[in-house]
Amino acid sequence: MQQLYNFAVGPLTWVAWAVFLGGAAWRLGSMWALARKKDMNAVAYMDVRFAARSMARWATPFATLGWRANPAVTVATFAFHISLGLLLLFAPGHAVLWDYAFGVNVWSLPEGVADVLTVLVILLCGFFAWRRLQLPTVRFVTRPMDWLVLALVAVPCVTAFLAKQQIGDNLLLSTLHVLSGEAMLMALPFTRLSHAIFSPFTRAYMGSEFGGVRHCPDW
């Protein structure tokens, strides 16, 4: 087990990052090439100014009709994504890894805060799961892929939490945490988690069309 753990935090980390970065670059690159080939009648209207305007709007809670109409999701998704982002980059355990891998000293979250955020993300995953099970409009469109991405995010958080709270076999949980975290990283470009790399473009495009052509807010 210790060997597996060592492997996971050692070479596998590099593999995971390589797959993530390489995968993301490849996916973005090939998608861009495809867009140039097939979608010039859309690409031609991309406009940085209108894209930024739309992104800023949608990055503000309750600043759009969609956010206002779905207050619970708004609160949940902002809390979820911000917490997740903070944890990914600044969890105390991760700071060690940054140092170990790149020799950089990264600021890290205070332990207590990290714990709270972890619990929050777990709860929010629960909330998303609840929606998928309970709300007809969400249930009707939920596919296995949606459960997969939820699991890919939830498992690293749950294992991190359990390991941290010393519940269960610490080494096993830590190993699972690292492995599942790496799975998430590697899966990002290839599952619906790819919205992290693609959604900035869909947003930018919608903003550009509505700003530059349709002269109408897209929020």
């Binding site: 080939k37 097939k38 999701v73 998704t77 409009t137 949606d146 959604s199």
Partner: peptide, 27 residues
């Protein structure tokens, strides 16, 4: 053949979050 990245990306990034349900007069 006809569609390209736009369709592919929409398909992939639609989060199935259902936030759009309230938008549509049919719904």
């Amino acid at each position: 053949g006809e569609a390209g990245a736009r369709l592919a990306v929409y398909h992939e990034t639609c989060m199935r979050c259902g936030m759009c349900a309230d938008a549509c007069h049919y719904c």
